[in-house]
Simulated assay, not measured.
Amino acid sequence: MSGDAHRGPAAALRPALPGETPVLAAIAEAAILGLTGEDYDEDQQEAWAAAAADEEALAARLEGQLTLVATRDGDPVGFAALKDNREIDMLYVHPEVAGEGVGSLLCEAVEKLATARGAKSLTVDASDTALGFFQQRGFVPMQRNTVQRGGVWLSNTTMEKILGAPAGPVH
């Protein structure tokens, strides 16, 4: 890994496009396999990645959700899905751009959209890898969970953030 904090151009956001499920599945799989090794063992990573890479299941899960895609030079590098205007159902960033602000950009956009649509709070079932990321954004741990993926058990934490509270300077 290089020490360059922002190597590429700034990321842009757009809605997910029809037929984009394969590239989103590939981003999720790469993120799981490339970023979660300190928190999950190889069996857990492989089961989670296989579930995320199931394009048919992913398409069904994203149907009806607001999904934003982060791009660099027009290429998708991350995505976030807002479910029922109250839950961040998924947020994945490709390992090649991890730590460059793409996840923060996606999370901030989802928070703003949910707030504009009247949500009072947002929840997320954060992986152990993402726990610190969401805590830095003002999410508070509520409960630990155990979920099964491909016959393997993984832990995560349900977190909540109250929206509309002052978080910093107003534009």
Rank of each mutant, 00 (worst) to 15 (best):
R137C: 01
A109T: 08
P166K: 12
D84G: 12
L122M: 03
G151H: 11
A119Q: 05
P141Q: 11
V124D: 03
A165P: 01
V97H: 04
L91P: 02
M159L: 06
G132L: 08
V140K: 01
H94Y: 08
A119H: 01
Q135A: 07
R86T: 13
E160L: 05
D89Q: 12
K112F: 05
M142N: 02
E160H: 00
V77M: 06
G151M: 13
K112Y: 09
K83L: 14
E87K: 13
N156H: 07
G74I: 10
A165I: 14
A80T: 11
D128Q: 15
G150F: 07
D89I: 04
Q143P: 05
L82M: 03
D89E: 14
V147S: 14
I88T: 05
F133Q: 01
A126R: 00
C107F: 05
P95D: 08
V152G: 11
V102C: 08
F133N: 04
A81E: 05
K112P: 05
A165C: 10
A116Q: 15
E108P: 11
V93I: 08
T123G: 01
N156T: 09
D75V: 15
M142C: 10
G118L: 06
G101W: 06
T129I: 05
L122C: 04
I88H: 03
S121W: 01
Q143E: 15
K112S: 13
I88V: 14
V147P: 07
P166L: 13
S127A: 12
E87P: 02
F134P: 00
H94I: 10
A114L: 04
S127I: 03
M90T: 12
Q135R: 10
L106N: 05
P166V: 14
M90K: 10
N156I: 08
P76A: 08
F134M: 00
H94G: 06
A80E: 05
V140G: 00
V97C: 04
R86W: 06
G101V: 06
Q135D: 02
L154R: 10
A126K: 00
S127K: 01
D84R: 13
